[in-house]
Amino acid sequence: MYLARVNFYTRCAIRGVTPAWVKEILLSCTTYDSASGISGALLFNERYFLQSMEGERSLLSNQIVKIAEDERQSGLTIVAFKAISVRMYTGWTVAFAARNTQMDLLYFRYNVIGELDPVRMTLDMFDGLFSELCQIDGSYIQRSSSDGRVQSAGRPRKDILAQ
Rank of each mutant, 00 (worst) to 15 (best):
E69P: 01
D70C: 07
D70T: 05
D70V: 07
D70I: 04
E71G: 03
E71N: 11
E71I: 12
E71H: 12
Q73D: 08
G75N: 15
G75M: 06
G75K: 10
G75R: 06
L76N: 02
L76V: 10
T77S: 10
T77R: 12
A80Y: 02
A80I: 02
A80T: 12
A80C: 13
F81S: 14
K82Y: 00
K82I: 01
K82E: 13
A83K: 13
A83C: 09
A83N: 11
I84L: 02
S85V: 10
S85M: 08
S85H: 09
V86R: 11
V86Y: 06
V86G: 05
R87K: 14
R87S: 12
M88T: 08
T90N: 09
W92Q: 15
W92E: 12
W92V: 13
T93D: 06
T93Y: 03
V94M: 05
V94D: 00
A95E: 02
F96E: 06
A97Y: 00
A97S: 08
A98R: 08
N100W: 10
N100L: 10
T101P: 06
T101Y: 05
T101R: 13
Q102K: 13
Q102L: 14
Q102T: 13
M103R: 09
D104N: 15
D104P: 01
D104V: 12
L105W: 01
L106A: 11
L106V: 11
L106E: 07
L106W: 04
Y107P: 03
Y107D: 07
F108Q: 15
F108M: 15
F108N: 15
R109K: 14
R109L: 12
Y110M: 10
N111M: 04
V112Y: 04
V112K: 13
I113H: 14
I113C: 08
I113G: 11
G114I: 00
G114T: 02
E115Y: 10
L116P: 01
D117R: 08
P118H: 11
P118Y: 14
V119C: 07
R120K: 13
R120T: 09
